[in-house]
Computed example of a mutant assay.
Amino acid sequence: MSDIDHMDRRILIELQRDAEQSLETLGAAVGLSRNACWRRIRQMETDGIIRGRVALLNATRLGLPLTVFIQVRTNAHAPDWLERFSTATRAMPEILGVYRMSGDLDYLIRAQVADMAGYDRLYQNLIRKVPLSDVSASFVMEEIKETTALPL
């Protein structure tokens, strides 16, 4: 964060709120000209601070209302197993995030599916591709907070 100044932070806060706003609107919100905003955004993209811009979709409206967190434990920790696991999980569009964890849990997977049958298909597909020691799942009953905005 030391490579960005206060104005960059303000721009990033605004872009996290609405990345689709015009440069004129953004400039007015942060107190810069359109061109100055554009130059700063381009530099942050070049520096890898801004990785991309996406549309946030409503999973429920698209028929994928069930969020599941899958806890994975494995006895295999060899590089070839990790490569198979990484390749398998990256290829499954239902899987939105995969995290290697500290503590008792080896991996945490976040997935979005239509229903329990959709989860079961995902589970069966995953265990066909890579051996796992222990798999358990928790299903989201209520989403209290979900954001992509970083605390700047």
Rank of each mutant, 00 (worst) to 15 (best):
D3F: 10
I4A: 04
D5T: 03
H6R: 15
H6N: 14
M7V: 15
I11K: 02
L12T: 02
I13R: 12
E14T: 03
Q16R: 01
Q16F: 07
R17V: 05
S22T: 14
E24V: 06
L26Q: 05
G27M: 03
A28M: 09
V30R: 09
V30Q: 09
R34G: 02
N35D: 08
A36T: 11
C37V: 08
C37N: 07
I41Q: 03
I41K: 00
I41N: 01
E45S: 04
T46C: 00
D47M: 05
G48E: 02
I49R: 10
I50G: 00
R51Q: 13
G52L: 04
R53G: 02
R53N: 04
A55N: 13
L57C: 03
A59C: 10
A59I: 08
A59W: 02
T60S: 14
R61M: 10
G63I: 04
G63N: 07
L64A: 14
P65L: 07
L66N: 01
L66I: 00
V68C: 09
Q71S: 14
R73T: 09
R73F: 00
T74E: 03
A76G: 07
H77Y: 10
A78K: 11
A78N: 10
D80R: 10
D80Q: 09
D80A: 10
W81Y: 11
W81F: 13
L82H: 10
L82I: 11
E83G: 02
E83V: 02
R84F: 05
T87Y: 07
T87D: 11
A91K: 09
A91G: 10
M92H: 03
M92T: 09
M92K: 14
M92F: 05
P93L: 08
P93T: 13
E94D: 10
I95H: 02
I95F: 02
L96R: 15
L96Q: 14
G97C: 11
Y99K: 02
R100D: 11
D104L: 13
D104H: 11
D104V: 12
D106T: 04
D106P: 03
D106E: 07
L108H: 00
I109E: 03
R110S: 15
A111W: 01
A111R: 04
A111E: 03
A111S: 12
Q112L: 11
A114R: 15
M116H: 14
A117E: 15
G118W: 05
G118H: 11
Y119G: 08
R121A: 15
R121Q: 12
R121M: 10
L122N: 09
N125P: 00
L126I: 07
I127C: 05
I127W: 01
R128L: 08
P131V: 01
P131Y: 02
L132K: 03
L132N: 05
S133F: 08
S133Y: 08
D134Q: 14
D134F: 00
S138M: 13
F139L: 05
F139P: 00
M141F: 15
E146S: 15
T147H: 03
T147I: 04
T147V: 06
T147S: 14
T148A: 10
A149M: 13
L152T: 11
